[in-house]
């Protein structure tokens, strides 16, 4: 069984290959799933004995190491299938940027990110507006 990793912070495992269907559970960054079957841009996967659907944009073939140690850093230089979470441009680099650019309005971005309609709200929004279920 091919194994893939979740490459987004969190993604719903869905009962059907559609965004606006029933959610079985949430999967987090770097979780590994086994691929059962494919349907267009959707993958039916198995996670801890439970089957559901994920969109391919949430998945990568790489194995993601959440808290990489020195050995992981060394291996990642030659192993293209290994990805190190939190490396490179990360929260610490953003923090350094904020210290050097106090005038830049990150509070507005934080506020923007708190505005997130749920999938249930989006589903109702589509139906009320006579739009397709995607």
């Amino acid at each position: 069984m091919q194994e893939l990793s979740v490459q987004v912070r969190t993604t719903p495992l869905r009962e059907q290959p559609t965004f606006l269907g029933r959610v079985l559970r949430e999967l987090g960054y770097a979780e590994r799933v086994g691929v059962v079957e494919s349907s267009d841009d959707w993958r039916q996967v198995e996670y801890q004995g439970q089957r559901g659907w994920l969109h391919v944009s949430a998945l990568t073939e790489k194995r993601i190491v959440l808290n990489p140690g020195a050995d992981d850093v060394q291996r990642a230089t030659t192993d293209r299938e290994l990805a190190l979470a939190g490396r490179g441009f990360n929260a610490e680099v953003e923090q350094e940027y904020r210290q050097r650019h106090a005038e830049i309005n990150f509070a507005a971005v934080d506020q923007m990110e708190r505005r997130s309609p749920t999938l249930a709200v989006i589903d109702r929004f589509a139906r009320d507006g006579g739009l397709e279920r995607v």
Binding site: R9, D41, E113
Partner: peptide, 28 residues
């Protein structure tokens, strides 16, 4: 107004070729 464009925007993003990003889509 922001809630409204967030619903329109999130809905159209789901129909795109990249519906899921690391942190998700947000609109302002």
């Amino acid at each position: 107004a922001n809630d409204y464009i967030s619903q329109v925007g999130r809905y159209v993003s789901l129909a795109s070729a990249l519906p899921e990003t690391f942190g998700g889509y947000y609109f302002q």
